[in-house]
């Protein structure tokens, strides 16, 4: 057994363990921490494949930015462990609980089988030295996948606008009842914490 193989087995096991523990926690902060563990292990797998850039981006974007935001929201809502989650599921819930993972595994099998691995790879590390390098990813992003990239940007913008709309509707209610003449409720979001 080579060192590469051992590292892959360990990091894959840690990634699966983190993902499993994430959905089994009642405490939301513990869930986030297990998700970070899983992401770091996945980054190790990417690095082993030679895709250093993707591994680093996984840490910078997901672990470094998005999950900090998750943690931030959990802190602001002050969610501790939620005893309601231990209540028994409705009958349909059990069906979904089993069906969705099975569907996902089947789907993943087809994706991996048809799209990602058309030729049989040799060994753990791929043959192509440029696989996942900054240049390859950037070239693909700005040539072949230019329109999907732009569309994703628009999609994210729509999501942000939607979030702002939802957040505003909630804060509009107390403003009518207090009937304050000044616009104190219209402070920008960034001063709320101060």
């Amino acid at each position: 057994m080579t060192l590469d193989y051992a590292i892959f087995l360990i990091s894959a096991a840690v990634a699966v363990f983190g993902a499993t523990m994430m959905i089994m926690q009642r405490n939301p902060v513990a869930s986030v921490l297990y998700l970070i563990l899983s992401l770091v292990a996945q980054a190790v797998v990417y690095v082993q494949l030679g895709a250093l850039f993707l591994g680093a981006i996984l840490i910078v974007v997901y672990a470094g930015a998005i999950l900090v935001l998750f943690l931030f929201v959990i802190m602001l809502l002050n969610l501790r462990s939620n005893p309601e989650l231990s209540a028994s599921l409705p009958p349909l819930g059990w069906f979904t609980k089993v069906a969705v993972p099975v569907l996902m595994v089947v789907e993943l099998y087809f994706v991996v089988d048809r799209v990602i691995w058309p030729p049989v790879p040799t060994g753990i590390v791929g043959k192509n030295p440029d696989f996942g390098s900054v240049e390859t990813v950037a070239t693909m992003m700005f040539t072949d996948y230019m329109y999907p990239l732009q569309l994703t940007g628009v999609l994210l913008l729509v999501a942000v606008v939607g979030a702002v709309v939802i957040a505003r509707r909630e804060s509009a209610e107390p403003r009518k009842t207090t009937a304050s003449p000044d616009n104190r409720n219209e402070q920008p979001i960034d001063t709320v914490a101060g």
Partner: peptide, 10 residues
């Protein structure tokens, strides 16, 4: 450089 950003963001 990206590695350093990954670490500072953690």
């Amino acid at each position: 450089v990206l590695y350093i950003f990954a670490m500072t963001s953690l």
